[in-house]
Write a protein that binds this DNA or RNA. Structure first.
Lengths: 204, 204
DNA sequence: CCGAAATCAAACTGAACAGTTTGGTTTGGC
DNA sequence: GCCAAACCAAACTGTTCAGTTTGATTTCGG
């Protein structure tokens, strides 16, 4: 089979989308390959033409979604930070966007899958590291670095300062966000701004 | 059967221990009831005399371990806080104990189980809320309240101030701690103390 | 419009596993 | 030392599911 033809790529993508939908809906072990095939609108046989195994499919799908996260949910533009008030605005925006994304049903379902499967599926660890760490830690750290260079914040350890900012947001995700889908309580923006306010006292 | 006799209670406990060991070792869906029976040194039939189903057993075991967490790993004595230096010491100790416990192999395995099974096992949500939230948030919040009453910290929102403290610790657990068991990198105490130092600037 | 590649539907295989049944053995209170 | 409750080992049931096989149908480049 010409697995690299235009047609084949389309089929591959079609399967990926069906599989993703199924996995997000019912988790990995709760999703049979028959169901994946049905969701993708594809015969089971074709499934196995394009993916060697369920695990193969899972790694491919999760890798794909993580790789495309930035276009699906742009976190923040790389902006320089001129003064304290400006930094407050940027951090407020980052916090808000971050919490809303991380606590969306889709993202939370993704977390459950990762954490559940990471222990048994080797390839997922590396992908996980690119999800929250690379995506959020690095971005926030970049902002803080600019701020430090501009003299807006003190000469703090950037990694720790970043954790001090990301951490409180994570409490919402992992302490309040892991309820059953639909029952998740997202904090309002005012509370996040209060955290930003506290945070600024620590680093400026 | 006299399920409340001394003997029966011992068997129940024996089964619980075997099941816990098995679940921590291989996860829930990776553990067959035959294997639980073997681990507990009990026949499969006896298993089903004491627990109606696998789900039943899981809820009982996890509920039990969470309920006994305080004696297994006493977090901190309820101490009053007299001044800033004293608060620093208390928070440093809390941070250190907390991170070491949360990042132990046993605790991390527990997290994986919770997060993986919470979606499909109704009873676990309530138990989870008692693990991190009730245990850590409430304890830290109590310390901060004392400190606030003593005038050691400002008049901040206690819930948010607590999240600002717990959050950075959680970054270590959830960003660095979810690697494969044995590959987990626990931060050293000095780094935690630096966070405490940053934190104190925010709340005092 | 032909034919090879791609796809499909459906039945099949083999293993895993939750929960049950059977029938025999141990234990401990009296 | 009896006997009933508790326990055990092992076979069995029914189901689910990953992955395969078969054989027919569709698609599309030439």
């Amino acid at each position: 089979m010409e697995l690299d033809s235009r047609r084949a790529q389309a089929k591959r993508e079609q399967i990926r989308q069906g599989a993703l939908a199924a996995f997000l809906e019912s988790g990995v072990s709760g999703t049979s390959m028959d169901h994946v095939a049905a969701c993708a609108g594809v015969s089971k046989q074709t499934l196995y033409v394009y993916f060697r195994s369920k695990e193969d499919l899972l790694v491919d799908v999760l890798g794909g979604i993580v790789a495309s996260l930035d276009e699906r949910a742009p976190l923040l533009a790389d902006r320089t930070v001129t003064d304290r008030e400006h930094l407050r605005e940027v951090l407020s925006e980052v916090a808000w966007v971050m919490v809303r994304h991380l606590m969306s049903d889709e993202y939370l379902a993704l977390f459950r899958i990762f954490i559940a499967e990471m222990a048994t599926t080797p390839g997922l660890l590396a992908i996980w590291r690119e999800t929250v760490p690379a995506r959020f830690l690095a971005r926030v750290e970049a902002v803080l670095q600019r701020a430090r260079e501009a003299g807006v914040i003190r000469d703090v350890d950037l990694d720790l300062a970043t954790r001090l900012f990301i951490g409180p947001m994570m409490t919402f995700v992992f302490l309040d966000g892991l309820a059953r889908p639909g029952e998740v309580l997202v904090p309002n923006r005012k509370r996040l701004d209060q955290i930003v306010e506290l945070y600024l006292r620590a680093v400026t």
